[in-house]
C-alpha cells in the first residue's frame, strides 16, 4: 500500500486506505467486542474465584482453578466423551457426505430432489431436529417400532449409557453430512471430465476411476472437510443438552456443555473460563497438528 505508482496521486491513495478502514471498521469492532475481548476476559477470569451472582466477592486465586480442573473427574469424563464423539463422527460424517455426493453427482431430474432432501436437515434448526429425534428414539418411537417388525426388541437408545452417545453421533452425522455433501459436489465438478474419458479409454472400471481419478481430484476438499468437521465436532453442545441433558450417568456430557453448566448454571465464571481456556489451547494444538499432518501427506496420499 505504500508503493506509489505513477498516475496515482498521494491523496487518492490515502483516500482509498481510509475508505478501506471505514469498510472494515464495523466488522473489526464486532470481532473485538464479541470475540477478542471475551477471550482476554475469560483468560483473566480463569485466575479468579468468581461467582457471577457475587461480583463483589471476586477473588484472585492464581492457578487454583486449573489445578482443580485437572483433578475434576467430571472434566475428564467430558473430555473422554468429546473425543469419542470427534473420533467417530469425523470419518462417519465425511464418508457419508462423500457417498451422498457421489450418488447424486449425475445430471438427472431426480438429482435436485435428492439434493434438497439431503440438504434440508442442514437448514433445519438443530434444536428442532434434536427434539424430533428424541421422539424417534423413544421407547415406543418410530425406530423401535420398525425394529419390532424385524424382530429386534425395543432399544433404550437415549436412556442407556452404552448407546446414548452413539445415537447422538448417528443423528448428528445424518444432520450435517448434507452440508459437506454440497462441498464435495462442488469439488467433483472441478474434476475435468477428460480425466474420466481418458481413464475409460485405458480400460478403467468405475471403482478404479473412483480410486485413481475422483479421490485424488478431491484431496484438497477432503482435507478441508475433515478439518472443518473436526472443529465443528468439538463444539458439540445442543444435541446432548436437549436429548439427554448429559446423561445417562454423564455418558454424553461434553466439554462445552460442562463449560456452560459450570459457568451459567453453577455460576462459577472463573472455573468455567479456566476450562474454556484449557480447551481452547488444546484445540489450537490439535488443529495445528492436524494441519501439519495433512500437509505432509499431500504428496504421498493416493
Amino acid at each position: 500500500m505504500s508503493s506509489r505508482r505513477p498516475g496515482y496521486s498521494l491523496g487518492r491513495e490515502k483516500e482509498k486506505v481510509l475508505l478501506g478502514i471505514i469498510f472494515i471498521l464495523p466488522a473489526i469492532m464486532l470481532l473485538f467486542a464479541f470475540l477478542i475481548l471475551p477471550i482476554f476476559l475469560a483468560f483473566d477470569y480463569s485466575f479468579f474465584s468468581y461467582n457471577i451472582l457475587m461480583p463483589h466477592k471476586k477473588e484472585f486465586i492464581g492457578l487454583s482453578n486449573y489445578t482443580d480442573i485437572l483433578k475434576d473427574r467430571t472434566f475428564w469424563n467430558a473430555m473422554k466423551n468429546t473425543f469419542y464423539f470427534v473420533i467417530l463422527i469425523v470419518p462417519y460424517q465425511s464418508a457419508l457426505a462423500l457417498f451422498l455426493a457421489l450418488l447424486i453427482n449425475r445430471k438427472t431430474k431426480a438429482t435436485s430432489i435428492f439434493r434438497i432432501g439431503f440438504f434440508s436437515p442442514v437448514i433445519t434448526s438443530i434444536v428442532v431436529i434434536s427434539i424430533l429425534w428424541t421422539f424417534l428414539y423413544s421407547k415406543e418411537g418410530l425406530i423401535n417400532n420398525f425394529l419390532g417388525f424385524i424382530g429386534i426388541p425395543p432399544q433404550a437408545f437415549l436412556t442407556s449409557e452404552d448407546q446414548a452417545m452413539n445415537a447422538i453421533i448417528f443423528m448428528s452425522g445424518w444432520q450435517m453430512s448434507g452440508y459437506f455433501m454440497m462441498v464435495f459436489l462442488a469439488g467433483l465438478k472441478e474434476i475435468p471430465a477428460m480425466l474420466y474419458e481418458a481413464s475409460s479409454i485405458d480400460g478403467a472400471n468405475k471403482i478404479q476411476q473412483l480410486r485413481h481419478v475422483t479421490l485424488p481430484g478431491l484431496v484438497h476438499v477432503i482435507k478441508f472437510v475433515i478439518l472443518m468437521t473436526t472443529i465443528q465436532a468439538f463444539k458439540l453442545f445442543q444435541q446432548p443438552f436437549i436429548m439427554t441433558g448429559g446423561g445417562p450417568n454423564g455418558s454424553t456430557e461434553t466439554v462445552v456443555q460442562l463449560i456452560y453448566k459450570e459457568g451459567f448454571q453453577y455460576r462459577n465464571a472463573g472455573y468455567s473460563s479456566a476450562i474454556a481456556i484449557i480447551f481452547f489451547v488444546l484445540i489450537i494444538v490439535i488443529s495445528i497438528i492436524m494441519q501439519k499432518f495433512l500437509e505432509e501427506n499431500e504428496s504421498s496420499t493416493f
Binding site: L35, I39, K235, A276, F280
Partner: peptide, 8 residues
C-alpha cells in the same frame, strides 16, 4: 468457536 461456547 470457543467464544461461541463461552460467550462471556
Amino acid at each position: 468457536f470457543i467464544v461461541n461456547a463461552v460467550g462471556c
